[in-house]
Write a protein that binds this DNA or RNA. Structure first.
Length: 215
DNA sequence: TGCCAGGCCCTCTTTAGGGCCTT
């Protein structure tokens, strides 16, 4: 069987998986606390106890706290898995859908490098690459599609409010991916636009986690 | 108490600087 050309690959309508991470902060040493993904009515929502301290700003916006090796979300104890269990579950979710396109907001700069680091730590990057057809970042996509609307902000929360008229619980990964799916449906990018914004983790540098002296 | 990062994009630009966006 001949491998597909880029043109053949790009013309395909792949299933869409929307994903989001909540983390301990914004720096390169931050760790994943929550991973959520959605495809239509199917969803995945898993939590991890981070090894490093949750930065104050991250705790404030996400509502996560670690107390006595337990993770709390807005004061409620949540069930957690190991990083490996979460990443393997995510891979299984992607594989079940048959090489979907992975979509996230500002994912090129934030979520995907973090995901790449987790995959490298578990030696699963190659398996991930074979499980998706590519990644798309809805931040530059929205900027291109909504160029004429003169929006003040392209933050996901703002786009959802301005375009869908919905105020939602931002900074909960599952809520974020559900609203991103709806937002993407509203934007209705053409296949051409999607291809222009498509990228892979191939060239994405995986920055090693720096042991935190703060924890 | 306040700050802590980094990639992308735009412009008052391109050899830079600053704002946006993610937690």
């Amino acid at each position: 069987m001949q491998p597909e050309t880029d043109e053949e690959e790009n013309s395909k309508q792949h299933p869409l998986v929307f994903f989001d991470l909540e983390t301990t902060g914004l720096g390169q040493d931050c760790e994943i606390i929550q991973l959520a993904a959605v495809n239509g009515g199917h969803s995945l929502n898993l939590y991890i106890i981070p090894r490093c301290r949750i930065q104050r700003g991250a705790a404030r916006v996400t509502g996560f706290k670690v107390r006595g090796q337990r993770l709390y979300l807005h004061g409620q104890l949540v069930f957690t898995n190991s990083l490996k269990e979460v990443v393997v579950s995510f891979l299984t979710f992607l594989q079940m859908l048959g090489r979907p396109l992975l979509i996230g907001h500002n994912s090129r700069s934030f979520d995907c490098p973090l995901l790449a680091r987790a995959l490298d730590e578990l030696d699963l990057r190659a398996e991930f690459q074979a499980s998706v057809s590519g990644c798309v970042d809805t931040l530059p996509l929205a900027r291109e599609l909504l160029r004429d609307r003169r929006l003040q902000s392209f933050r996901q929360e703002n786009l959802v409010r301005e375009l869908l008229g919905i105020n939602y619980k931002a900074h909960d990964a599952l809520e974020d991916v559900r609203t991103l799916q709806t937002l993407y449906g509203f934007l209705q990018p053409t296949q051409d636009v999607v291809c222009r914004h498509k990228f892979t983790l191939d060239t994405m540098e995986s920055k090693p986690a720096v042991p935190s002296s703060k924890s």
